[in-house]
Simulated assay, not measured.
Amino acid sequence: MADVFACAGCGAGLTASLTRVALPVRTHQRYGHDLLPALMEQGTYAVDPEPSGPPWRPWDAIGADEAAARGVFAPVPALSSGLPGAILVAPGDTRGTVLIPERCDGYCLGLDGRAGPNLACAQCGRAVATRMDDCTFWQVVRLDPTAVHRIPSGGPDPTADWAEIIRDREPAPPIEPPGRWSPQWQAAVAVALAHLLAASGGNRVSVPAGPLATAFGRALDGLLPAGPTAKTLALAGPGLPAPATDIVLVPQHPQTGEAWEPPPGAAGAVPLAADVWTYLAFHDDRRLVPATGVLPDGVLRDDPLPHHPWGVLRPDARVLLHTLSRLPAVREPWLRAIHDRLSDRPS
């Protein structure tokens, strides 16, 4: 179903026609000091269930009981006391809004929303949204759920089946020019890593050599205790044979956010963003066999060498801690110890 969001005060339209998708795993990521692209794909929106924006309360002022009631089970620096349910859209999909000049603060190169909503309805002046486009942030407009209302149009959109997703969804390449790991990969791997740690039960996990080991092997070896391997990890999902392992990485549906369900009796499943899972499952990284001779005259070389990373893949520490702190399993002493060690030394 395509939706338009309108001002709750005067009814003016504030967005283009949008389709709801799952909340991106990189929503709460902050990366480097670069200007990042838009968080949401054009023509889509997602809903963030967590409170967002000021005022912020430090952990000492919240306490473990109140935090647990909000779904946070390990200490975090601070929690928002803003409203939950913000509607996230790409900045280019907004319509009929103007900046509120006195709220256009930021840290470096743009707006970071520190002063609260900084976009108003151009027709009636009501504060309706917060634009965030400073360095380190994925660019996004967060519509205030109390200041807008949704206007549905048309019937419900069909949910793509897994065969369509595997066929049509573009895999996310892991390396960006000139050789850094994609922040999208660092966030997706971090979220899956948190669930992998919980699924391990504190036991060492064996990861097969290849792309899976590149993505998860080093982190699992560094975070789980030394000792004999107790569990094994493999990819599972549509188009792959069922592996005989203890833990499987399965894709998350990009529309619904639901994880692919393995057959009954299969191993425990850990979700991974579909575009990263698709790359790991189906990308053919084999090199062409060298051939003799030269290209004919007038034929240009069109197969540049693949990008190689500057260093090892480091899952995003902030995203990993954010996800770990919201897993009930983090209350187990062994997993809480990993959380606390990461909090003290996130690198």
Rank of each mutant, 00 (worst) to 15 (best):
M1C: 08
A8S: 14
G9W: 00
C10W: 08
T15R: 02
V21N: 05
Q29N: 04
R30H: 14
L39G: 13
M40N: 02
Q42V: 12
G43H: 09
G43C: 07
A46H: 00
V47F: 02
V47L: 09
E50H: 11
P54Y: 11
P55S: 07
W56P: 00
A68F: 05
A69Y: 08
R70K: 11
A74D: 11
G82P: 06
G82A: 10
P84K: 06
I87G: 01
V89T: 03
A90W: 02
P91E: 14
P91L: 13
T94Y: 04
V98P: 00
L99P: 11
L99G: 15
C104R: 13
C108L: 13
C124A: 10
R126Q: 15
V128A: 10
T136K: 12
W138N: 07
Q139V: 06
H149D: 12
G155C: 05
P156Y: 10
A163I: 04
I166K: 00
I166R: 13
P174V: 02
P174N: 05
I175G: 08
E176T: 12
P177K: 02
S182Y: 06
Q184R: 14
V189N: 03
A192C: 12
A194M: 05
H195Y: 06
L197A: 04
A198M: 04
A198Y: 00
S200C: 09
N203I: 04
V205C: 03
V207Q: 02
V207L: 08
P211M: 13
L212P: 04
G217M: 10
R218A: 15
G222Y: 10
A230Y: 03
K231V: 04
L233D: 00
A234D: 13
L235M: 10
G237A: 04
G239F: 12
P241V: 07
P241C: 09
I247D: 01
V250K: 01
Q252T: 11
H253P: 07
P254D: 07
T256I: 03
E258T: 07
A259G: 11
P264Q: 06
A267I: 01
T278D: 06
Y279C: 03
D285L: 14
R287S: 13
P290V: 09
A291V: 15
P296H: 05
D297W: 09
L300F: 07
R301W: 15
D302M: 10
D303G: 01
G311D: 15
R314A: 15
S325N: 10
R331F: 05
R336L: 13
I338V: 15
I338E: 03
R341P: 01
S343R: 13
D344T: 15
R345Q: 14
